[in-house]
Amino acid sequence: MMSPTITRTIRGAGLAVALAVAGAATPALAQGQAAGGAPAAFTTADLARLCGPAADDANAMALRPACYAALVSIGQVHSLYTSGRNAQRPIFCLPEQPPTLDVVSAAFVSWAAANQQYSTTRAAEGVLRFAAQTYPCPAAPAGRRR
């Protein structure tokens, strides 16, 4: 079971991911529709395919911005939830010198391939699980809690 903090962050990130992906519709995504033309759930595996298309994929250049938009959107929603007066404890903490989107997307693709048990989870959940493992936060001092 996921913690309430992760669940709240995922709910908020879901809208951001949906908007990011809706603006980047490609033939590869258009094929993933449920019955009645409704969009299928956007999963961790779907995002990994956007972030790491095969070299011979004719849509590779068109997919990269959609990948970046999803990663940035999820990161920004996480930032909104973890700053300000009612801040939640962060799920991940980027290093002082943040990695480039190329580095993050490649690492996410590798993580998704190694963690296929999350392939059918929502993309936002997959990204947050990846980020928590890849960019863990330092342990909070024992006397300080949020």
Results as ranks from 00 to 15, higher is better:
Leu128Lys: 04
Arg145Cys: 11
Ala113Asn: 13
His78Ile: 03
Ala69Tyr: 13
Gly32Tyr: 13
Pro138Ile: 06
Ser79Met: 13
Ala123Glu: 03
Ser73Trp: 10
Gly75Cys: 01
Pro53Val: 14
Pro27Ala: 08
Ala34Arg: 11
Pro65His: 05
Ala58Trp: 01
Leu94Asn: 13
Arg146Cys: 02
Met1His: 02
Thr43Glu: 08
Gln97Pro: 07
Ser119His: 08
Thr121Ala: 03
Gln116Lys: 09
Thr121Gly: 00
Ala106Tyr: 05
Leu15Gly: 07
Ser73Asn: 10
Gly14Tyr: 01
Pro95Cys: 05
Ile91Thr: 09
Ala107Met: 03
Ala131Asp: 04
Leu19Phe: 11
Cys137Lys: 05
Ala132Tyr: 01
Ala25Leu: 13
Ala113Glu: 13
Leu15Lys: 11
Ala16Glu: 13
Ala18Ser: 14
Met2Ala: 09
Gly12Ser: 10
Ala25Tyr: 09
Leu101Thr: 15
Glu96Asn: 07
Pro27Leu: 11
Ala131Trp: 01
Ala113Lys: 14
Ile6Asn: 03
Leu80Tyr: 08
Ala124Trp: 04
Ser105Ile: 11
Phe130Cys: 08
Ala132Asp: 10
Asn59Pro: 00
Ile6Val: 14
Pro136Trp: 05
Arg85Phe: 05
Leu50Val: 03
Ala55Cys: 02
Gly14Cys: 09
Thr7Met: 09
Ala55Tyr: 10
Arg144Thr: 06
Leu19Gly: 14
Gly36Thr: 07
Asn115Thr: 11
Phe108Asn: 02
Gln133Asp: 15
Glu96Cys: 00
Cys51Gln: 05
Ala16Gln: 14
Val17Tyr: 00
Leu101Tyr: 05
Ala69Arg: 11
Pro138Met: 08
Thr43His: 08
Ala48Thr: 03
Val104Met: 10
Ala16Pro: 07
Ser105Trp: 02
Val109Arg: 13
Val72Asn: 13
Asn59Glu: 15
Tyr118Met: 03
Arg64Gly: 03
Arg49Ser: 09
Phe42Gly: 00
Cys51Phe: 04
Gln117Lys: 08
His78Asp: 14
Pro138Phe: 12
Thr9Met: 10
Pro99Arg: 07
Gln88Pro: 01
Ala55Arg: 13
Gly75Ala: 09
Ala106Arg: 14
Gln88Ile: 02
Asp102Trp: 02
Pro53Thr: 11
Thr7Asn: 12
Met2His: 09
Arg64Asn: 05
Leu80Cys: 01
Ala69Leu: 08
Val17Trp: 06
Arg64Cys: 04
Thr134Gly: 01
Ser79Ile: 00
Ala58Thr: 06
Leu94Gly: 12
Leu71Asp: 06
Val109Phe: 07
Pro136Ser: 10
Gln116Cys: 00
Leu19Tyr: 11
Phe92Gly: 04
Ala140His: 01
Ala18Gly: 13
Met61Thr: 14
Phe108Gln: 04
Asn86Arg: 03
Ala30Ser: 06
Gly32Glu: 12
Ala48His: 00
Arg122Gln: 12
Ser119Met: 02
Ala40Tyr: 06
Ala87Ser: 15
Tyr81Phe: 15
Ala54Pro: 05
Ser105Pro: 02
Gly84His: 05
Cys67Trp: 07
Tyr118Gln: 07
Leu15Asp: 09
Ser79Thr: 15
Thr121Ser: 12
Glu125Met: 09
Ala48Arg: 06
